[in-house]
Simulated assay, not measured.
Amino acid sequence: MIAWCSQQSNWAIGFADEVWWSRFALPRMSAWQDEEQPVRLVEQPWQKRDPDPKALACYGVLWQQGPLSGPRRSEMSLRFVTGRPVSALTIQFLEWCCTQLQAQGKTAWLLIWDNASWHGSKQVRTWIREHNQQVRQAGKGTRILPFFLPTKSPWLNPIEPKWVHGKQAIVEPDGLLTAQQLAERICAHFGCSHEPHLALSKKVV
C-alpha cells in the first residue's frame, strides 16, 4: 500500500503521533494512558504560582514525500491541545489536516499511527467513515485511510525520533519557558505555523 501510494501525486502519506512538550529543563518522553485514566502529575509548591500548564500536549504529522527508495520526511504539521488528546480533539485535528491536504489537491491520506485508544475509538472510526462517505458523494475533499502500527512498536513510526531531537534542541539547560515561548520554539524548530490550540467546546449546563 505504501509503495503504491508513494507513486500517486494526489495521495499523501503521513505518520501521526501525540506527545508532551515539557516547559521544564531536560524533559523526558511521557507514555500516554487511555482516555479513561487521568494523567497524574506531581506538583511542587512553587509551581502552584505558575499560571501555565507544566507541559503542552501536541498532535503531529510527519509527511512523507518522494520515492519509496529515498523518501523525504522533513515537513511537519502540528497543533497544540488545551488538555490532553481525546477522541473529540483527534477528530478536530484530522479535519484540520484534511482541509490542508485538500488545498494541496490531495484526494487521499494514508494515515499511519499507533493504537492509542483515541485513535481507534468508536467516535473517531465513525467520523472517518462518515467523512469518507461525504467526500465520495461530493466528489471533492481528502479521504482518510487509517493504517495501525503493531502494538508497542514506536520504532516503526519515523515521527518518534523527530520528537526526541526536537526536545533536545528546544529546551533550556535550566530554568523554565512560558507556554507561549515553548510553542513558538517548537513551531520555529519544525518550520510550522503556530495555529490556535485545539480545545473542547464547553458544555452548557
Results as ranks from 00 to 15, higher is better:
residue 38 P to H: 06
residue 41 L to C: 14
residue 42 V to H: 15
residue 43 E to F: 14
residue 46 W to E: 15
residue 48 K to V: 12
residue 48 K to I: 09
residue 49 R to G: 13
residue 49 R to W: 08
residue 49 R to F: 07
residue 50 D to L: 10
residue 51 P to V: 02
residue 52 D to W: 04
residue 54 K to N: 12
residue 57 A to T: 04
residue 59 Y to K: 02
residue 60 G to A: 13
residue 61 V to G: 02
residue 61 V to P: 02
residue 62 L to Q: 01
residue 67 P to R: 06
residue 67 P to D: 00
residue 72 R to G: 09
residue 74 S to P: 02
residue 77 S to R: 09
residue 79 R to V: 03
residue 81 V to A: 04
residue 82 T to Q: 09
residue 83 G to Y: 03
residue 85 P to N: 07
residue 87 S to Y: 06
residue 87 S to H: 05
residue 88 A to R: 15
residue 89 L to T: 05
residue 90 T to Y: 13
residue 91 I to W: 11
residue 92 Q to P: 02
residue 92 Q to E: 09
residue 93 F to E: 04
residue 95 E to K: 12
residue 95 E to Q: 15
residue 96 W to P: 00
residue 96 W to I: 00
residue 96 W to F: 10
residue 98 C to G: 02
residue 99 T to D: 14
residue 101 L to K: 02
residue 103 A to C: 12
residue 103 A to V: 07
residue 104 Q to H: 09
residue 106 K to A: 08
residue 106 K to C: 12
residue 109 W to C: 12
residue 111 L to D: 01
residue 120 G to D: 10
residue 121 S to N: 08
residue 121 S to H: 08
residue 123 Q to C: 11
residue 123 Q to W: 12
residue 125 R to V: 01
residue 125 R to I: 03
residue 128 I to S: 04
residue 131 H to T: 01
residue 132 N to H: 07
residue 133 Q to S: 01
residue 135 V to W: 01
residue 136 R to A: 14
residue 136 R to S: 15
residue 137 Q to V: 09
residue 137 Q to N: 11
residue 137 Q to Y: 11
residue 139 G to V: 00
residue 140 K to F: 04
residue 144 I to S: 00
residue 147 F to E: 13
residue 148 F to R: 07
residue 149 L to P: 01
residue 149 L to Q: 04
residue 149 L to M: 07
residue 149 L to A: 05
residue 150 P to H: 04
